[in-house]
Amino acid sequence: MNQPASAYFLEERRDPTEAHTLSVLVQNEPGVLARVIGLFSGRGYNIESLTVSETESQKHLSRITIVTTGTPMVIEQIKHQLDRMVPVYRVVDMTLTGRSMERELAMVKVRGGGDNRVEALRLADAFRARVIDATTESFVFEITGNTGKINQFIDLMRPLGLVEVSRTGVAAIGRGPEGM
């Protein structure tokens, strides 16, 4: 195949990509999130989901959970690139450990009446979603679960009058007694 004339070697990479969930423990200081995000945008990595909050305020530690996709070589790169940043303590690939749980929370607003309203309530019950706001023509449901479950719930709400969704993104933690 002819490639365009270039000073660079143009190669198409067709390795299959994988989704990985990374937990990153960082010093909570100004700019640390910008550093992490800048790394992803600067090097062309994907961010599917990003969740960040201070987890140990006395030690000024924040935990960033990133869901990313890439070839195994790229995922390896991402972890090393994160790990070498000065304010980063640890990077754990939750997908590789195989012993992690992932949850996100979504708030789902549905508007409608009649059978649709009844059906929405019935489905919410089946998914263990709670009603956190209601008017005579709408509900706001709160649902937690893994990404797949939430996607499924949202898909079901769509024909019943889905108005909007607010999601937290994924938080992950390992099973068992050990910390990260």
Binding site: F9, E11, M73, Q77, H80, D83, R84
Partner: peptide, 27 residues
Amino acid sequence: GRTDAFSPGSKKIHIDIDPSSINKNIH
């Protein structure tokens, strides 16, 4: 040069202080 034709028959040892240099371009 072309990475898929780079030193095809060799075992490669890589000493580097930066872990992100390992397996970045060449396994």
